Lab assay of single mutants.
Amino acid sequence: MDALKSAGRALIRSPSLAKQSWGGGGRHRKLPENWTDTRETLLEGMLFSLKYLGMTLVEQPKGEELSAAAIKRIVATAKASGKKLQKVTLKVSPRGIILTDNLTNQLIENVSIYRISYCTADKMHDKVFAYIAQSQHNQSLECHAFLCTKRKMAQAVTLTVAQAFKVAFEFWQVSKEEKEKRDKASQEGGDVLGARQDCTPPLKSLVATGNLLDLEETAKAPLSTVSANTTNMDEVPRPQALSGSSVVWELDDGLDEAFSRLAQSRTNPQVLDTGLTAQDMHYAQCLSPVDWDKPDSSGTEQDDLFSF
């Protein structure tokens, strides 16, 4: 819950932080000083300027060897085509990944977070970031790969997607708890209302004896509580940590079903599988986004697919 609360507080303090972009060759504004600060901008989305290598189908939802083989196929196909790589912007948030063309600003792909089953910074092609997700059109699994400016960037994108998945799962947990509370309150309110109706004398007997209905007592009954809980029953509950912020979080049926399955089948359902080692994760978390744009010590960066 700490990640969720800190993310909400950060967004309320400075929503404009989320509009910064990394990996864009110096076009961005001043960047936060450390990885923790940038992680807090996830709610509205972190932007990464990358190059799209392509996509291939895979048979399993996750796995280092599986993704490595898929990336190898994608890279080989991209090299064989001889075409310049498409420059894209990857927007990562707890909602998922939005992929747009840098030149036309046209939407290429919009992947809900619950469809993503794996992401990684490839070991062999260490400047490549990739994720595996279920197609929104059918049940097939797709591996999408992107060329980053350097290994640090690939690791940073991988960690960002993993963190977005974690925050999304926490949102789901909060929403589920809130819905259970509202359902319980609604049920209790309905029981109270039913009890009051059972003990209320029939209207005919009131008229016969000349008694008047006590409207004041009726007004004191917990009807307002019942209506408050039943009027918006169809509205999706939102985490309290975000009250007053500009973010509107809505959970669709697909996300609810997917996270429910994860909660039942996995020990740590909030953790998205990645190909990063503990050492890689520690190294990337210690980086400032400013470091992502620094040239690798191995030599001059080449803006070309064939540089790796």
Rank of each mutant, 00 (worst) to 15 (best):
K91P: 14
S175N: 05
M55P: 06
V247E: 02
L17W: 04
D291Y: 00
P269K: 02
L215F: 07
G45P: 09
A69H: 14
V174S: 02
A145G: 14
E250N: 04
Q264P: 01
A154Y: 00
S112I: 09
I12V: 09
A78I: 10
L103G: 14
T149H: 08
Y114F: 13
G82A: 13
K166I: 06
G24H: 06
M233W: 03
S227H: 06
S186F: 04
V92Q: 10
L43Y: 13
L223Y: 01
A156H: 00
L193H: 03
Q270W: 02
S243N: 07
L31R: 12
S117Y: 06
T120W: 06
A78F: 06
Y131T: 07
V167N: 11
A68L: 03
G26W: 14
R29H: 04
S224K: 02
A162F: 03
S21C: 03
P202Y: 10
D273Q: 08
L47V: 07
R9F: 10
V248W: 10
I12S: 15
D101N: 11
W172P: 01
L4H: 02
L213C: 09
E216T: 01
S135N: 11
F146E: 05
G244V: 14
I71Q: 03
I71P: 04
T300S: 06
A154F: 01
Q139N: 13
F169T: 01
K127M: 08
T209N: 05
S298M: 02
S246C: 08
P94Q: 10
S298Q: 08
R39H: 04
E217F: 11
L50W: 01
P61F: 03
V248A: 10
I97W: 09
P202I: 02
A162I: 06
P239N: 00
K30T: 15
S81V: 03
P202H: 09
R151I: 01
Q106T: 13
V236M: 08
A278M: 07
K204H: 03
D273A: 03
F169R: 01
D273N: 09
A69R: 13
I97C: 13
M55S: 06
H28F: 12
A80D: 08
P295C: 03
K5W: 07
S67M: 14
C143F: 15
T267C: 06
D253V: 11
G299N: 13
S81E: 10
L47M: 14
S175Q: 06
N211M: 15
S260N: 10
K294Q: 02
D252Y: 09
D183Y: 14
R73P: 03
W35S: 13
S21V: 07
L251Q: 15
A18D: 05
D273S: 06
E33V: 10
A164L: 03
S16L: 14
A154D: 03
E235D: 07
Y118S: 05
L107Q: 12
A7Q: 07
L103W: 02
I108E: 09
Q187L: 04
G194Q: 02
V157E: 01
R73K: 11
R261P: 02
L203P: 08
N105H: 05
G82S: 10
E257Y: 00
V174M: 00
Q106R: 10
A208C: 09
D101A: 10
Q173Y: 13
K152P: 00
Y283M: 12
K5S: 00
M153Y: 06
L213I: 05
Q20V: 04
T300V: 03
N105K: 12
K5P: 06
G275T: 08
A284E: 00
Y114P: 12
P15Y: 04
A284P: 13
P32H: 15
L141Y: 01
T120K: 08
I132D: 07
L287E: 07
A241S: 03
A208F: 03
P222E: 14
Y131S: 13
P289Y: 05
H137N: 15
V161C: 07
T36G: 13
P295L: 14
Q136N: 12
P269G: 03
V207F: 04
A168L: 05
T230F: 02
I108L: 07
E188P: 03
V58C: 10
A278T: 00
E217K: 06
Q264I: 04
R39T: 08
E59P: 12
R39L: 13
T218Y: 03
S117T: 12
A208R: 04
A76S: 13
E33S: 10
E257P: 04
E65Y: 15
A228L: 02
Y131C: 03
A78K: 12
L223W: 02
L262G: 02
G275M: 03
H125W: 03
A130T: 09
C119W: 00
L147D: 03
E65G: 14
L255H: 11
S140K: 15
N34R: 09
T36H: 09
R238K: 06
C119R: 09
L141G: 12
S265D: 07
L43W: 05
E142Q: 10
L31W: 13
M46K: 04
S224R: 00
E170H: 03
R151K: 04
T218G: 06
V58A: 15
P32Q: 02
K179H: 15
A70W: 08
V226A: 12
D304L: 10
G244C: 12
R196V: 06
S245I: 14
S21R: 06
V247I: 00
R9G: 10
T120G: 06
E180N: 07
M124I: 05
